[in-house]
Simulated assay, not measured.
Amino acid sequence: MTQKIVIELPLNCAKCEKKIMAICTTADGVTAFAFEREGRDRVVIKGEDIDPARITECLREKVTKHARLVSVAIDDD
Rank of each mutant, 00 (worst) to 15 (best):
F35R: 07
I23S: 03
C58D: 13
P52H: 08
A14F: 00
K15T: 13
R42V: 06
D41L: 05
D77Y: 13
V43G: 04
T25L: 00
Q3W: 04
M1S: 13
K4R: 15
V30W: 01
I5V: 09
L9S: 04
T26S: 11
A53N: 14
E57R: 13
N12Y: 09
I23A: 01
E61H: 11
K18A: 09
F33P: 04
I50N: 02
F35I: 12
E57F: 01
K46C: 06
V70S: 05
E36N: 15
D77N: 14
E48Y: 02
L11D: 07
K4V: 14
I5N: 09
L59N: 03
L11P: 04
F33A: 03
I50Y: 02
L69N: 06
D49Q: 11
A32F: 04
E61W: 03
Q3I: 10
A32G: 08
C16E: 13
A32V: 09
K65Y: 08
R54P: 00
F33M: 06
I7M: 10
I5P: 07
C24G: 03
A53L: 15
I55C: 06
D76E: 15
T56V: 10
N12H: 14
M1Y: 11
G39E: 06
K19S: 11
D51N: 13
E17W: 00
M21H: 11
G29S: 04
C13Y: 08
I74D: 06
A27E: 12
P52N: 09
M1E: 15
T2I: 15
A34D: 14
I20Q: 02
K46W: 01
V70C: 06
M1C: 11
E17A: 07
I20M: 00
A53T: 13
R40L: 13
E38R: 14
R54C: 01
T56S: 03
K65C: 00
Q3P: 08
F35Y: 12
L59M: 04
P10H: 10
C58G: 01
L9R: 05
R54H: 11
E8S: 15
L9H: 10
V70K: 07
F33E: 05
A22L: 05
P10V: 11
F35N: 03
C16P: 07
V6Q: 13
D28K: 15
K65F: 01
Q3T: 12
D41R: 07
H66K: 15
V44I: 12
F33W: 05
V43D: 03
E48W: 01
C13W: 06
I5T: 10
T56D: 05
V63M: 05
I23Q: 02
R42G: 07
R40G: 03
I55T: 07
P10C: 07
T56F: 00
K19F: 00
F35K: 08
I45F: 01
A34E: 13
C58I: 10
C58A: 13
K19L: 03
V63G: 04
I45P: 03
K18Q: 10
I45W: 02
D49V: 02
D75C: 08
E57Q: 14
